[in-house]
Design a protein around this nucleic acid. Sequence first.
DNA 1: GTGGTCTAGACCACT
DNA 2: GTGGTCTAGACCACG
Lengths: 126, 126, 126, 126
Amino acid sequence: MWLSVDEKDSRPIYLQIVSQVKEQVLNGGLKTGDELPSVRELGNILAINLHTVRAAYLRLRDEGIINLHLGRRATVAGPPRSSGTAEMVDELKRRLEEIITDALLKGLTAETIRKIVDRHLEDRER
Amino acid sequence: MWLSVDEKDSRPIYLQIVSQVKEQVLNGGLKTGDELPSVRELGNILAINLHTVRAAYLRLRDEGIINLHLGRRATVAGPPRSSGTAEMVDELKRRLEEIITDALLKGLTAETIRKIVDRHLEDRER
Amino acid sequence: MWLSVDEKDSRPIYLQIVSQVKEQVLNGGLKTGDELPSVRELGNILAINLHTVRAAYLRLRDEGIINLHLGRRATVAGPPRSSGTAEMVDELKRRLEEIITDALLKGLTAETIRKIVDRHLEDRER
Amino acid sequence: MWLSVDEKDSRPIYLQIVSQVKEQVLNGGLKTGDELPSVRELGNILAINLHTVRAAYLRLRDEGIINLHLGRRATVAGPPRSSGTAEMVDELKRRLEEIITDALLKGLTAETIRKIVDRHLEDRER
DNA sequence: GTGGTCTAGACCACT
DNA sequence: GTGGTCTAGACCACG
């Protein structure tokens, strides 16, 4: 479990944690059933408030990434049984298209963008 | 100039405008030198606060997409002289990887993601 | 907008609010696009902390009942485009069966249970 | 006696046990006078804390489902002498209506809900 | 010891 | 003025 808070990152702390946990679930660093640190532990480690950690865990729960139970540590949930709804796909598509637009406007070539996408997809396809 | 505010979109209104202007610059709907509506006009059309429109225009200026002139309408700037800095590329890469991670975790296949990217890149490469 | 906190209700305050808002959305007291009170307002009215109200609003957002936007009041979302996933139906079925089991064990007849269900379904079918 | 703990179930473990015992009492798997496993046995079988099993048994006793005896195994109690009090009926009604509201908001039809209720009531009426 | 709820107060981003 | 994030500290329910 390697998690960190990046002061320079403009995203809120709790979303940084969400992002890092997701990445580790996908690359195999965290497997189904694995326990996450308690909110108090992780708060101490990262020198942030336990409520901030909790906000991250709540978001991860709502996205189906982890399970939360009273009195027990958070555990990594299994892969989703059903693939995304049409709404979810539309939302992801919108976010994806927006950043591609940004990249092209900043002068990146289509080839560069395809390379970034392909490299990230390799070894992560489920 | 087709702009709209989507209630279902969770992004702030000013960023929705920013995003739509960028898209139109890229797909040719807006060309270098074209005039944008005045802040007041656009505020009336979209029925939103003038501060919100102004925030969008300021952001577009900061990203080098448009030029603002005292007492005159904003105009579309030309393509960037230099391609993005290393920092900008890193930031774009991080955002791109994050959404790909999300998509994979929600059950989308790598093939589906590549298709979305490719379709959006077609006809938009500068 | 009639909301209240019941001291005798064993459920957490924020879930009481969630439940009441849902009921009003379903019975037509709240329609798509309607604004909810601000978290500060509702907190004052109900004499509870604004964070407690916020917890309710977050839950309602996550269940797709309302939309939240920075700087704007919460608004009632429209009905879902897609019907529930298999997982959601299973969960609802489990909750429904559990309470029916409870009711039967406490001596209620099947007829009584059917009556309660039917009366609540009347005038609420979408 | 078939009992299990479901990781995906968001309810506390002790309530999962309570729910499963009730279901078996109702469907005839457990009859009046039958013995339940000892707290220690069940804790070992399910690999959970003894306190958790004890909490479940206490709750079952409080609801009149089982009898606890010092030094002996718990036994299944008979059906309730009187049907529920008005308070109990109100509570059950509230819970029932809340889940029906949830189901309708998630797009289930009244017909689907009636089917689930009817199927569960069949063969379980006392 | 763990997560769940509630309160309180601060500061920031958006409208 | 509105929601969003973060901190802080209290008490409760569960394991």
